[in-house]
Design a protein around this nucleic acid. Structure first.
Lengths: 212, 212
DNA sequence: GTATCCTGACTGACGAGTCAATCAACTGAC
DNA sequence: GTCAGTTGATTGACTCGTCAGTCAGGATAC
């Protein structure tokens, strides 16, 4: 377990991020990853048992940070709006620091949990669940209105963020800190405040238009 | 161009939807599609020049309907909320009628927009643009508030819908008409009204917290 | 009779994963 | 301090299954 050994493993993972982002997981060859990492083909199989395991590792590493960030956002703030802001900010900062990695996570894993292991699906849903919990407690405390289910609010919140990132991903948009702040505000404002005018709220009409 | 010929082409496309949904585009073989369609392998290449072209065709067919539905929703209603409701309803109904097709569109095309033709990307963005246009005009007429940019509102709206569908896709959730109505209401209510309480609106704080 | 539909065996390329061999660092025996 | 022995890192040529796409020919319609 020499330092050099650890470095090579890391180099392969980092190279894989760049290659997956550039060519896509299915389209690229394992030899592309080895070449990008400046490492012999066989070494990839010394550290990973398969091409899939490389993607697995990248996702699990990143998602663990994500879950931790959500838990921390929940713990660090009292105001639910501040909690959501912290989560949105974390995800946008992740993209700012490593757009390739976020591209891989979103394009290859989040949307592809189909063919991939069901394990990832559980992890992803864990994140939604935590966000829903935040909303639920905000409703219980009276800070958020109860017409919208917590699970739905969580999906809309995460969905809005992912859609913004997806838009950026394909034309390799880079952000600065100011834009992260601006977009974070926009996301939280949209989900919490809505796009309609204040007087346009139809709180009572929700139940009536929802028959059966 | 006999009727039977048209039918075979259609049969291949329909079979491809089922196979792509079940196994994923990259994982499945062209022979799987031919088998599913009850047709000889070679016939697939009589009607389509490549495996990619099949997916292309499915996407373009569906997306044309999508764009038409958005245009119609815009034309048929005066109230912007009703317009958004019509669009959300159309997408959810599409899922209700053909979940496999929607799964393929969302999972395989969004994912492939990377390696796939930029044409699709333009088509997808066209839809966002139209939705943004609806929001923009609603703001001009005073129905929607102007703190949230139309482009952003469009992303959040579409993102929320896609996230809900993505959640359903992986556990093959089927809906009835009542649920379509219920979820449509939820989406429109979330995007237009927001999850926060009425008094929680921070209209003026948007500009102040957004430095630079 | 010819144009289009249809068949399925075949091919050629490609790429994931294997493996036998080399190298580098350390270990302990003398 | 050095040398055989051991363990793990590293290499890249090779194997072997897989599959997209071809093609030569048969069936069917008009």
């Amino acid at each position: 377990m020499a330092t050099a050994a650890v470095d090579k493993r890391r180099m392969i993972l980092d190279a894989a991020v760049r290659v997956f982002a550039r060519q896509g997981f299915h389209t690229c060859r394992v030899s592309d990853i080895a070449d990008e990492a400046g490492v012999a083909y066989g070494l990839v199989y010394h550290y990973f048992s398969s091409k899939d395991e490389i993607l697995d590792t990248l996702f699990l590493e990143r998602w663990a940070l994500m879950l931790a960030a959500i838990a921390e956002a929940d713990a660090a703030h009292a105001d639910p709006r501040a909690k959501l802001r912290a989560i949105a900010s974390f995800i946008l900062e992740s993209y700012r620091h490593d757009p390739d990695l976020m591209k891989v996570i979103i394009v290859e894993v989040t949307r592809a949990a189909n063919t991939f292991g069901r394990t990832h699906l559980a992890q992803i849903r864990d994140a939604y669940g935590q966000i829903a919990g935040i909303v639920e407690r905000a409703q219980a405390s009276g800070a958020f209105r109860t017409e919208i289910t917590p699970e739905f609010a969580a999906l809309a919140f995460y969905g809005a963020i992912e859609q913004v990132l997806t838009g950026w991903i394909f034309d390799e948009h880079r952000l600065d800190e100011a834009e992260v702040r601006r977009v974070t505000t926009l996301i939280v404002e949209t989900i919490c405040g809505g796009v309609g005018r204040g007087g346009d709220r139809r709180t009572s009409s929700v139940a009536s238009s929802d028959s059966a």
